[in-house]
Every structure is written in structure tokens, then in C-alpha cells.
Amino acid sequence: MDLNLVRVFVAVYETQSLTTAAARLFVTQPAVSQALGRLRRELDDPLFERDGRSMRPTPLADSVYPGFRDAIAGIDRTIDEVHTFDPSQSRRIVRIALSELGEIGWLPAILTALRSRAPHMRVEVVPLDVDALPEWLSRGTVDLAVTTATIAGGFERRVLKSQGYAVVMSEANPLAAEPVDLRAYASAQHVTASEDSGAPLLAIAQRRAGLAVDPVIALRHVTTLPAVLAASRDLIATVPDTIAEGWATTWPLVVQPLPFDMPPVEVSLYRRSTTQHMAALDWLYATVAYAIEGSSGRFFVIHGDAVERQARPAAGGRA
């Protein structure tokens, strides 16, 4: 079988588009269509059926894709060993999916690591969408993703950090004087943020503890939380502990341990499964992992007014 036919098949499978596959392979769309026709005759199967704008794979295509993908990846890596990838000369565009907090906490370290060795490489940050990640990683829409969510699909991943959670509230909150027990936690007024990718794991831990938390305020951005909490005597939030501790250095906030068991949340780096530019992807994956593992995060940049923090306790906030 012509190896180029296998490469075309992998590109069409991963992009689900003849046009996008042609652009990836630097050929015309008719050339892709012609190659796909030959492969259909070789395997005696339609392989792909049009579904709107997408090319939906047949069961046979699903079954042969893993073997074809691994074969192409192995060949490309062998060729890359001859023509060594040089990050200092690369002008590739790399796309990394990050949450709001990931962009604040990890992006500075990532950019420092990349730009020190690949000064011409362009970086695009894609807002994290956990539901879309399986498709993005399987089609190569993004190269990497950093998330606390577990992504189905068998993608290669590397655990970078383990993150605990804590309760945070204003210094003026009556609950701030001592650790919060389960009863006080259950009856407190909660505020949540939808962009916390660890929220589903927190909800599981709460249910196991017999808690049904119904927030009185549901925000979108995690970065809004410290200002909202600092302005209220009643609200509490449950957030990653290192982030809460960073906020407490400049906001009038108190951080308390959780009153229930919750396993640490793993922050993982996922890589796309598509086969193009494997040497560049290997280098990018290792470099970003090393940068995040060596960084404590820059979550402290979400800060308040230090002068206001010093003045607030004197105004009669805390027992």
C-alpha cells in the first residue's frame, strides 16, 4: 500500500475535513479526494461518509485508525531523528488551552521557557472548554491543554501538580475566628465560580460528605471571588488552597481547612493525539511540563489594596 494513502487517511480522520486535511498535507483538496478514493478501493470500504460539513468515519475507519496513526507517528519520529527539530529556528504556531487561573498562574513560566529556547515560535492561548477538549485534542485544534479535569479518549498526559482545596472568607465573617465545622459550612452562604475546572471534583467530595451546596451567588470568573468575599460578612467560597493563600496576603481574607475529606486535585498536561510535527510536539510537551512543575504559580497577582487590608481589621472585623 502507498504510504501516502495512509497519511491522507490519518489527516482526514483527525480533521474530519477534506479541506483541512489538504491544508495540513500541503496538497490540494482534489488530491486528497483522489487518494481517499484509492484507499477506499484498497480496503473495500467507504471509510468516511459526509455528515453536514464533517466526514464521519465508518466502523472500519475507527478500527484501523490507531494502527495507521501509530505507524505514521513512528515513521515521522524516525525521520525527525535525522532532521533534528531545532526550536531556536522554529516559527511554528503552538496552541495551548488554559483556564482563566491557568493563564494567570502558569502562562508566565510557560512563556519564559518557550521564548528562551524558541524565540520565533508563536503562542496562542485558547480559553479552556473541558467539554470540547476531547475533540480539540483528537483533531489537533490545540497542541496542549492544562486542566484538573479528567479527559476521556486515552490522550497522553502528565500530572504536574496536586492541588488541595480550602475555605476562604472575609476577615469580618463570624466564621473566620476558628476552623469551620461541617454544620457551619453547610449552613453558610456560598459563592461559586463556574470557571473553576476543579468544581466537579469538589461537588463529588461534598456529596460524599452529605452536603448539598446551593450557592447564593454564582460567578463566572474565579478572579472576581476575592473582591466579592472581602466586601461581605456572610459569604464563603471553596477554592484551591494555594490560590486562596495568595489572595490572603493582600486581601482582608481568612483561609480555613475544609471540614470534610477531599483528595488532592491533579493538575495535568494533555497533548494532542494527531500525528503532525511529532518532534516539535515532543519538545513542546516536555518544555511546558518542566516550566509548570518548576513554578509555584503567580496567583498572588490577583491582589487587593494592601493599605485597605491593614485598615479593615481595625474597623472591627475580626474577633
Results as ranks from 00 to 15, higher is better:
residue 186 A to K: 05
residue 260 F to W: 06
residue 145 A to S: 14
residue 212 A to L: 14
residue 234 D to G: 02
residue 153 G to I: 15
residue 225 L to R: 08
residue 155 F to W: 10
residue 235 L to E: 02
residue 213 V to W: 03
residue 188 A to T: 04
residue 205 A to T: 05
residue 172 A to H: 05
residue 234 D to I: 08
residue 167 V to Q: 02
residue 214 D to S: 12
residue 218 A to T: 15
residue 172 A to S: 13
residue 255 V to W: 05
residue 166 A to Y: 05
residue 217 I to T: 11
residue 260 F to P: 05
residue 150 T to R: 13
residue 207 R to K: 15
residue 167 V to C: 07
residue 250 T to W: 06
residue 221 H to T: 05
residue 155 F to D: 06
residue 152 A to C: 04
residue 146 V to W: 00
residue 155 F to R: 09
residue 171 E to Y: 07
residue 240 P to A: 11
residue 257 P to D: 11
residue 190 H to F: 10
residue 204 I to H: 02
residue 152 A to W: 07
residue 199 A to R: 09
residue 197 S to R: 01
residue 170 S to P: 11
residue 249 T to E: 15
residue 183 R to M: 07
residue 180 V to Q: 08
residue 157 R to V: 07
residue 226 P to I: 02
residue 211 L to Y: 04
residue 178 E to S: 15
residue 214 D to Q: 14
residue 269 L to Y: 11
residue 213 V to H: 01
residue 179 P to V: 14
residue 198 G to Y: 00
residue 252 P to W: 09
residue 155 F to K: 05
residue 258 L to V: 11
residue 189 Q to E: 07
residue 255 V to H: 04
residue 207 R to M: 13
residue 199 A to F: 01
residue 148 T to W: 00
residue 148 T to V: 12
residue 150 T to L: 15
residue 232 S to M: 11
residue 167 V to F: 02
residue 167 V to H: 03
residue 223 T to G: 07
residue 224 T to M: 14
residue 225 L to G: 04
residue 193 A to P: 01
residue 160 L to E: 08
residue 238 T to D: 05
residue 220 R to W: 12
residue 228 V to I: 13
residue 240 P to Q: 12
residue 225 L to E: 01
residue 227 A to L: 14
residue 233 R to E: 07
residue 255 V to Y: 03
residue 171 E to L: 12
residue 198 G to L: 04
residue 233 R to Q: 10
residue 177 A to L: 08
residue 194 S to V: 15
residue 197 S to T: 06
residue 251 W to E: 00
residue 230 A to E: 02
residue 212 A to Q: 13
residue 209 A to I: 10
residue 183 R to H: 09
residue 182 L to V: 10
residue 262 M to K: 09
residue 226 P to C: 08
residue 267 V to K: 04
residue 169 M to Y: 03
residue 212 A to D: 15
residue 158 R to S: 13
residue 177 A to D: 10
residue 198 G to M: 06
residue 219 L to R: 09
residue 209 A to E: 09
residue 198 G to Q: 02
residue 263 P to T: 11
residue 227 A to N: 13
residue 226 P to W: 01
residue 263 P to Y: 01
residue 246 G to A: 12
residue 151 I to K: 06
residue 267 V to E: 10
residue 250 T to I: 13
residue 265 V to C: 11
residue 164 G to Y: 03
residue 161 K to E: 04
residue 217 I to Y: 01
residue 203 A to Y: 00
residue 253 L to N: 05
residue 211 L to I: 13
residue 207 R to P: 05
residue 184 A to S: 14
residue 191 V to E: 02
residue 175 L to E: 02
residue 151 I to Q: 08
residue 228 V to D: 03
residue 238 T to R: 02
residue 251 W to C: 06
residue 264 P to N: 14
residue 218 A to E: 14
residue 198 G to W: 00
residue 185 Y to I: 04
residue 254 V to K: 11
residue 147 T to R: 03
residue 201 L to T: 06
residue 254 V to W: 00
residue 188 A to I: 04
residue 167 V to I: 15
residue 235 L to M: 12
residue 222 V to N: 04
residue 267 V to H: 04
residue 261 D to C: 00
residue 254 V to L: 10
residue 145 A to F: 09
residue 226 P to Q: 06
residue 148 T to H: 02
residue 251 W to Q: 07
residue 233 R to P: 04
residue 228 V to H: 08
residue 264 P to G: 10
residue 244 A to G: 13
